[in-house]
Nucleic acid binder design. Structure first.
Length: 431
RNA sequence: UCCGGUGUAGCUCAAUCGGCAGAGCGGGUGGCUGUUAACCACUAGGUUGUAGGUUCGAGUCCUACCACCGGAGCCA
């Protein structure tokens, strides 16, 4: 019995006869010699089919193999400098599992709309494959980070009865005789959970029905949201900084090949080490003024503003103490400057924009009730949330990291739509 | 939602002033023992996004609509 192996492990079998199962990634030939680039999800290897080494029938069948046909190739693993990856498979037997129809995605250029229509197939391409491997690494690293620090994973609900922040548009759905909304954040539930478990986080999909049409927005995206009881803003920032450093470090350690496929400037990622710069909103405004940007003091930063500010730094940048007026109702205000919120946004370098938003939460019942009323939010729906301030209220803080934005930054992709397997945007629900 | 742009072969694009609808890739056939997006020869492939209009004549000009792309706002 010939052992079956994955391409990633091929070096262990140098000189041995093995079977590799996969798909035809690309094919070229030279008369009596065929080169089949075989892809199995773990890597690619060149299978060399020489007419003299296989039966007439097999050679004829291989000559006409369309791209993405599925095969089991048996042969001897040989080190060869002429082969990409250093090893090739000198085939002596080929089993065609399925001969593919004309595959739409060729090794040439394609437009984004066509590729997105064929997203279910595009996932097989090298760069898309690499991005999603990095995405997996980031998820794994984030979870390892929190798990190793004794955080408890608490899943937040997807169906929610009310708006978390009340400002952005929610997807509405029929829920028996009433309305339910798809969650836009697990944060409020994490605040409740933090009072039960101390250190918690959730990781799940979130939904925003905003009519945003930019390279940084999806209608369905994933967030990792830690929340810690008795934390203040500074501790919250320390946590965010440690997490990002850990995630980037994990990707550099375990997904270097993928970063190379993506032609990512690795030096820029290697530079992501603590401490990250921390500046006040007012400092950021000053940077914008010096850069000659047209910016009204008191406003939130737009995407171009964030780019200008982040260009002054080579590491992720944390901006704190925004005007409370532009931030959500649950943000605690700075006792020293009551018009400022104890909040933090982390801006990724290289113009990738905000990847983290968070801060210390308002823990005073009366202040929170007043804030809800000012925002015209239904008190009734927030009773459970107010209970958190009624029964042993404590200072607490947390943040949310947009997974896809982090993936886009770490992978150096200009558009967020490539960082999730099947993106949902304003204009795309398929496939 | 607003501003700007693009729709031509399966894909990526060209078509001068309004005057015969083109190429590369992919597909098919044949050739080649070291290819890396191979190469060479031959070959098939079109309701020019849709509906109107102007004109002797529209891929090209006009109107509306549709689809998508880039950006803004909002946000992660």
């Amino acid at each position: 019995m010939v052992p079956q192996t994955y391409i990633a492990d091929i070096a262990e079998f140098a000189g041995k006869r093995v079977t590799v199962a996969g798909w035809v990634y690309n094919k070229t030939g030279k008369g009596k010699l065929l080169f089949i680039m075989l892809r199995d999800g773990t890597g690619t290897i060149q299978a060399v089919v020489f007419k003299g080494n296989v039966s007439e029938e097999i050679f004829a069948a291989c000559e006409n193999l369309p791209q993405e046909s599925s095969l089991r190739v048996t042969g001897t693993v040989a080190a060869d400098a002429r082969a990409k990856g250093g090893y090739e498979l000198q085939a002596d037997d080929v089993e065609i599992v399925h001969s593919a129809a004309d595959y739409p995605i060729t090794p040439k250029e394609h437009g984004i709309d066509f590729l997105m229509d064929n997203r279910h197939l595009w996932l097989r391409s090298a760069k898309q494959h690499a991005i999603l491997k990095v995405r997996h690494e980031i998820i794994k690293a984030a979870r390892n980070f929190f798990d190793s620090q004794d955080f408890t994973l608490i899943d937040a609900p997807i169906f929610t009865p009310n708006a978390c922040e009340g400002t952005t548009t929610l997807f509405e759905t029929d829920y028996f005789d009433t309305k339910a909304y798809l969650t836009q954040s697990g944060q409020l539930y994490m605040e409740a959970a933090a009072m039960a478990f101390g250190k918690v986080y959730c990781f799940g999909p979130t939904f925003r029905a905003e009519k945003s049409k930019t390279r940084r927005h999806l209608t369905e995206f994933w967030m990792i949201e830690p929340e810690v009881a008795f934390y203040d803003l500074q501790q919250d920032m320390d946590l965010a900084e440690q997490m990002v450093e850990f995630i980037v470090g994990s990707v550099l350690e375990n997904r270097r090949d993928e970063l190379e496929v993506l032609e990512r400037d690795i030096a820029k990622l290697e530079n992501v080490s603590r401490p990250f710069p921390r500046i006040l909103y007012d400092d950021a405004v000053r940077i914008l003024r010096e850069a000659g940007a047209d910016f009204k003091d008191g406003d939130d930063f737009g995407a171009p503003d964030e780019t200008i500010i982040s260009e002054k730094f080579t590491k992720p940048l944390m901006i704190t103490h925004y005007p409370a007026a532009v931030k959500a109702f649950y943000m605690k205000r700075d006792p020293q400057r009551p018009d400022r919120a104890l909040c933090v946004d982390m801006i990724a370098p290289e113009g990738y924009g905000e990847i983290i938003g968070g801060g210390q939460r308002e823990d005073d019942l009366d202040v929170l009730v007043e804030r809800l009323q000012k925002h015209n939010l239904p008190l009734q729906a927030f009773q459970w949330y107010l209970d958190i301030r009624k029964y042993g209220s404590v200072p607490h803080a947390g943040f949310g990291m947009g997974l896809e934005r982090a993936v886009a930054w770490i992978c150096g992709r200009s558009h967020i739509r490539e960082t999730i397997p099947f993106p949902r945007t304003m204009y795309r629900l398929n496939p």
